[in-house]
Computed example of a mutant assay.
Amino acid sequence: MASLSFFKLALLTPLLLLVLASSTSSVAQLARLQPKIGCQTQCGDVKVDYPFGIGKRCGRSEHFQLLCKRNDRGRFKTFIRGNTLYDLEVSSISVSEGLARIKNPVSWLCYNRTDGSVTFDYSGANLIQTPFWVSNTRNIFIVIGSNAFAYISLNGTNSGYTAGCVAQKFSKESMVKSSCSGIGCCYATIPIRSKSYAMSFSLLDSNFSSSYSICGYAVLTEVNRFRFSTSYLTTPGSFEKDIVNLSVVLDWTIGNEKCELAQRNITSYACVSSHSTCVDYHGLGYRCSCLHGYGGNPYILHGCQIIKDIQRSVPVPLSK
């Protein structure tokens, strides 16, 4: 009987060691996918929460690493890595909403009444090597000018798409305050699945000499924050002044697979907090979210907390 028990133990020992090794490997992998101690969590005005990070091994992967560097005025600003067209400045990132905002790249074309020359600058963004997508529900393509045509070319996972519109020639009488209705201002919607975009600008004619507007603009911007003003057409510099307060909204996903597939690989699955869940995002990947009644960061261990506990941890301002 003793020899039989020993024989069973001898058979089970390698299996137990394999399970233990696998468990240890999973724990080590899980720890590797958590932020290391001492990572920078703020750059200028932008709060950076995991899975994003600043510096080596501070983000979930190199695709989630952001840059923190000084701008021309010596202020620290946050930028997206991997963009090959322009440095894209980040104005905010939300882990709970799965979105980020970046400063607007603007395409423009201006006429010089003195010598008759035309100057221009075309812009865009390339997010292919990043976890970001251009939000089709939160952004809109805007063209401002006199008899001006502009278009935006977008590329996604499978194919390209082009949209554009014509901002018709206007007079002071034809302009409608706060209305982007086609006279001096027009707009176009954009599709889902866009990882990059480029904006081009052209004119239907070059008769600027009799026009109030000597410049035309094309910009992708957050639809809920854009308000058209007739001063953009009549007052030089008015649009440039306001555009600094606008942003492009980006969605982001933690992985490219659906939840069902992601959950099978415990060593890379991102929703590691208790009381967190996985949410498919339009076939583009998945995100993590805290369950109803919980808030916090689902991408870190014990990141989702009961909402009332989170509220208790917030200092209550003293009454005057």
Score class of each variant (00 low, 15 high):
Leu4Lys: 12
Leu9Asn: 15
Ala10Cys: 13
Leu11His: 10
Pro14Thr: 03
Leu15His: 13
Val19Lys: 11
Ser22Arg: 04
Ser23Glu: 15
Thr24Asp: 14
Ser25Val: 07
Ser26Phe: 09
Gln29Trp: 10
Gln29Gly: 08
Gln29Tyr: 12
Leu30Cys: 11
Leu30Arg: 11
Arg32Leu: 14
Lys36Thr: 06
Thr41Trp: 03
Cys43Pro: 12
Cys43Ser: 09
Gly44Leu: 07
Lys47His: 11
Tyr50Asp: 09
Gly53Lys: 03
Ile54Asp: 05
Gly55Asn: 03
Leu66Ser: 06
Arg70Asn: 11
Arg70Glu: 15
Asp72His: 07
Asp72Lys: 09
Lys77Asn: 06
Ile80Tyr: 00
Thr84Glu: 12
Thr84Trp: 05
Thr84Pro: 08
Ser92Leu: 06
Ser96Trp: 04
Glu97His: 14
Glu97Tyr: 06
Arg101Trp: 01
Ser107Met: 08
Trp108Val: 00
Leu109Trp: 03
Cys110His: 06
Tyr111Arg: 03
Arg113Met: 12
Ser117Phe: 08
Ser123His: 13
Ala125Lys: 00
Ala125Arg: 01
Asn126Leu: 00
Ile128Asp: 03
Gln129His: 09
Trp133Pro: 10
Val134Phe: 06
Val134Asp: 01
Phe141Leu: 07
Ile142Tyr: 06
Ser153Asp: 10
Ser153Pro: 02
Asn158Arg: 10
Thr162Tyr: 04
Thr162Val: 14
Cys165Asn: 06
Lys169Gly: 09
Lys169Asp: 04
Phe170Val: 00
Lys172Glu: 08
Met175Phe: 02
Ser181Pro: 05
Gly182Asp: 05
Cys185Val: 00
Cys185Ala: 03
Cys186Pro: 13
Tyr187His: 15
Ala188Asp: 07
Thr189Tyr: 09
Pro191Trp: 01
Ile192Phe: 03
Ile192Lys: 06
Ile192Thr: 09
Tyr197Asp: 07
Met199Cys: 04
Ser200Val: 04
Ser202Val: 06
Ser202Pro: 01
Leu204Asp: 05
Leu204His: 02
Asp205Arg: 12
Val219Gln: 01
Leu220Asn: 13
Thr221Ala: 11
Asn224Gly: 04
Arg225Gln: 14
Phe226Asp: 11
Thr230Trp: 00
Tyr232Trp: 15
Thr235Val: 11
Pro236Phe: 00
Pro236His: 02
Glu240Arg: 07
Lys241Tyr: 14
Asp242Asn: 15
Val248Ser: 04
Val249Tyr: 02
Asp251Ile: 00
Thr253Trp: 09
Ile254Cys: 10
Ile254Phe: 08
Ile254Tyr: 08
Cys259Glu: 04
Leu261Asp: 15
Ala262Val: 05
Gln263Lys: 14
Ile266Glu: 08
Ile266Val: 13
Thr267Lys: 08
Ser268Leu: 09
Ser268Gln: 11
Tyr269Gly: 00
Tyr269Cys: 01
Val272Gly: 05
Ser276Met: 03
Thr277Tyr: 06
Thr277Gly: 11
Asp280Pro: 15
Tyr281Met: 05
His282Glu: 14
Gly285Leu: 12
Tyr286Pro: 13
Tyr286Asn: 10
Arg287Lys: 15
Cys288His: 02
Ser289Asn: 10
Ser289Cys: 08
Cys290Val: 13
Leu291Val: 12
Tyr294Thr: 04
Gly295Thr: 06
Asn297Cys: 02
Pro298Tyr: 01
Tyr299Trp: 04
Ile300His: 01
Gly303Ser: 08
Gln305Leu: 07
Ile307Val: 10
Lys308Asn: 12
Asp309Val: 05
Pro315Tyr: 04
Pro317Ile: 01
Pro317His: 02
Leu318His: 12
Ser319Ala: 11
Ser319Gln: 13
Ser319Arg: 13
Lys320Arg: 15
